[in-house]
Design a protein around this nucleic acid. Structure first.
Length: 322
DNA sequence: AATGGAGCCAACCGCTTAGGT
DNA sequence: AACCTAAGCGGTTGGCTCCAT
């Protein structure tokens, strides 16, 4: 036996809203509010619409200060960073972007951002293959670091932090900054869920720090989780990177999270290291926003300010111009 | 000019969650 | 504690527009 319908479907109009319906709904809500009962609202107004449909129309279209289209670079970066951190939690992502609806962001991701990300990964892989062929032809033991700098430069900072790509400059700086030669993607076992979500901030921070030595973003402890993104064995690590974006983004979005989990050695559900979780269920995220988003956003905003001011920071317009 | 395919987006569907009784 | 109802949410779909042929 199925669920009882929320409204009398036979007497409910479906499909696109007419300007008259929009005007009725908007006028009523602006004057009286929703009254906390969407189901009863269409009857009060005299609309032959389902309450859910009214709610959706208001939230996604009629509500004041709604922005449609024209996503900025900053919004792109926030969306991508958050998607990488928390997956398709569109309402949470939308909460970080004033004026944007979850539906808008979801559509934008599915139709544009996702494809851009995959396209960039393909380009990077092609460049890497070409680089490997060149390297194979070169004399062994060369001190020259033949990184696919051009390919790396085509990747936005949020993506380059997820897909471990390095540049000669970053490599050199990393050597100066870190005496350790054992690059590891390791998480502190005691990492909390909050810390992992802060990973997004670290992505931004790590990218900033590799491009600007005096950025205040570099003050964020971006090596805490091993996501500083550069190291002597970077290409080996890249080859081992378990995420195929083609598969994950177009086939199984949750797999992106799983891939990151296994890659990072963390169970995002309980904060323990990989291998300790026996549950086959998807992770329980809990109240993510209360756990992390306030500090995360403030960190991000602070970081963003620096990025905007720092002319040496990687030009994110590369991303939009793809 | 006609047509077919791709891209985009508004809206719907159904499941989950939260709150009330 | 159990149940019911409405809101919230994310996945999916249908139809419109644009563009290439």
């Amino acid at each position: 036996m199925g669920r009882a319908p929320c409204c009398d479907k036979a007497n409910v109009k479906k499909g696109p809203w007419s300007p008259e319906e929009d005007a009725k709904l908007k006028a009523y809500i602006e004057q009286h509010g929703t009254g906390g009962n969407w189901i009863a609202l269409p009857q009060k107004i005299g609309l032959r619409r389902c309450g859910k449909s009214c709610r959706l129309r208001w939230l996604n279209y009629l509500r004041p200060n709604i922005k449609h289209g024209g996503f900025s670079e900053e919004e792109d970066n926030i969306i991508c960073s958050l998607y990488i951190s928390i997956g398709s939690r569109w309402s949470i992502i939308a909460a970080q972007l004033p004026g944007r609806t979850d539906n808008d962001i979801k559509n934008y991701w599915n139709t544009r951002l996702k494809k851009k990300l995959v396209g960039m990964q393909r380009k990077e892989q092609q460049a890497r293959r070409a680089s490997c062929l060149i390297k194979q032809g070169m004399k062994r033991g060369s001190e020259n670091f033949m990184a696919p700098a051009e390919a790396a430069s085509q990747i936005p900072y949020w993506a380059s932090s997820v897909l471990p790509v390095t540049t000669p400059e970053a490599h050199h700086q990393q050597e100066n900054n870190n005496n350790s030669t054992n690059f590891q993607y390791s998480f502190d076992i005691s990492s909390t869920q909050d810390q992992f979500y802060d990973h997004s901030v670290n992505m931004l921070a790590s990218s900033a720090s590799t491009n600007s030595t005096n950025s205040t973003c570099s003050q964020i402890p971006n090596t805490q989780y091993g996501f500083n993104g550069v190291g002597p064995n970077m290409f080996e690590e890249l080859n081992n990177f378990p995420i195929d974006l083609d598969e994950l983004l177009f086939g199984n979005p949750q797999g992106l999270i799983s891939g990151l989990e296994s890659f990072c050695g963390i169970d995002m559900g309980n904060g323990s290291t990989a291998g300790t979780s026996t549950s086959a269920e998807s992770p329980s995220w809990g109240d993510v926003s209360s756990l992390v988003y306030a500090p995360m956003l403030s960190n991000y905003e602070a970081c963003q300010q620096v990025m905007l001011q720092d002319s040496t920071f990687v030009d994110s317009s590369r991303f939009r111009s793809q």
